[in-house]
Design a protein around this nucleic acid. Structure first.
Lengths: 217, 217
DNA sequence: CTCGTTTTGTTGGAAAAACAACATACTTAC
DNA sequence: GTAAGTATGTTGTTTTTCCAACAAAACGAG
């Protein structure tokens, strides 16, 4: 576990806390490390969770699939992000979490994280604060996605999403964490319509794209 | 403020804390009460907030309106719910919050709430915990809405939404917190299409509706 | 390199939603 | 009760998406 101190220090959960303090907390928080290979499921719809997870390496998708195989991708989680904290209110999780790259996940006992213990963990309060902000960010992200998919046309959704990605990247050129099918599932549109619309937009000179790489003009 | 102790005790933020303890905390948390009349805005897009709000009475809508007047209703907040906690990560709020009924709102200094103080507030930890769960619920609610509006057809969205409302009400008859236009703005569809679809569904015997009252069959 | 597989692009017809315009029902103030 | 204003329902047309099927390009294993 020591090996991962550096990674943990970079995560949102332990921001502002130095390695030695993290190490001291690991036991108290009942830390646990797991590896997942591409395509493997970390969490399945309907499960109840009592742990908080940090992605130390890799990439995950939070998604759900209905009876007919229609996939809905809620969000893509990248290294350093916290997840699972949104499902601690006792309700069953309604999504699957699946690794889309080989991933390393470190988890903690949620109760222990949320309860400030007597003495040992000086920085525990900071962890709770960080967790709170992570959850808050999560919320903002969901609202952002809601804004995207409540746009009426495929083009409007794309515009909204791509502008945001460009803004985030700080450059008109950027790479998205989705392939075409995944992007369609994220924006809740048909893959073929998405491809068609992207084709039109390229012809109109609005953007250029090759696979997951985009450049807005 | 004393007058509102009973109301506060019923809110999610102070769940499990008795009135005397709440009263003791009010000063520490820099509590503040405001009244809003129907149609009045509590918070406007772009503002930054450093307080946490509890709706003691009334009903609010969290919504945003674009340049052309297209309204998008994110959620409806009812008595006892906490709001504002999703925007403490420093980012500007991207919605308006507007009273749709005469409302009473009690607010607290966010920093004070999030920082356990020395001694006076024995139940402070519980408040933080409650806040966390409120935020977590908020998150679940957003994911639920995402699930609704990522359905492709107006009918599917309606089915999804109405089934949930029935389940929540524990009865096939229930009242929704929206009129037709608001429901359309919530589900991201056209009002006329919504009305038309509801008409069809009634003819097919799937449900009955009068204004905001619905009965599923 | 070659073959099989996966991803992406393209197209035309079917289905659905958006839009506009108007009819009807309900509410409110006077 | 009436008039004005608001909310809801209805209909026909236009626009967009969905769907299915196939073509082209990229990728991976041997």
């Amino acid at each position: 576990m020591k090996k991962y101190l550096k990674l943990l220090k970079e995560t949102n959960l332990f921001e502002g806390i130095d390695e030695s303090a993290i190490e001291a907390m690991l036991g108290c928080l009942n830390a646990n490390k797991s590896h997942f290979s591409e395509g493997e499921y970390l969490i399945r719809q309907g499960e109840r969770i009592d742990r908080i997870f940090v992605l130390a390496e890799g990439r995950l998708h939070v998604q759900s699939e209905d009876f007919w195989g229609n996939r809905n991708i809620f969000t893509s989680i990248s290294t350093g992000e916290v997840f699972g904290q949104a499902y601690l209110s006792g309700e069953a999780i309604m999504n699957d979490v699946v690794a889309v790259e080989p991933s390393i996940v470190i988890s903690f006992d949620a109760d222990r994280v949320l309860t400030t213990c007597s003495s040992a963990c000086r920085f525990h309060t900071q962890v709770i604060r960080n967790l709170f902000f992570a959850l808050s960010k999560n919320n903002v992200r969901l609202v952002t996605k809601l804004a995207h998919i409540s746009k009426r046309t495929t083009r409007a959704k794309l515009m909204d999403y791509l502008s945001l990605m460009a803004k985030k990247a700080g450059s008109p050129s950027f790479t998205i964490p989705f392939d075409r099918q995944q992007l369609a599932d994220y924006l809740s549109v048909e893959r073929s319509s998405l491809s068609a619309e992207l084709g039109k937009m390229q012809k109109e000179g609005l953007l250029q794209t090759n696979r997951s790489r985009f450049t807005l003009m």
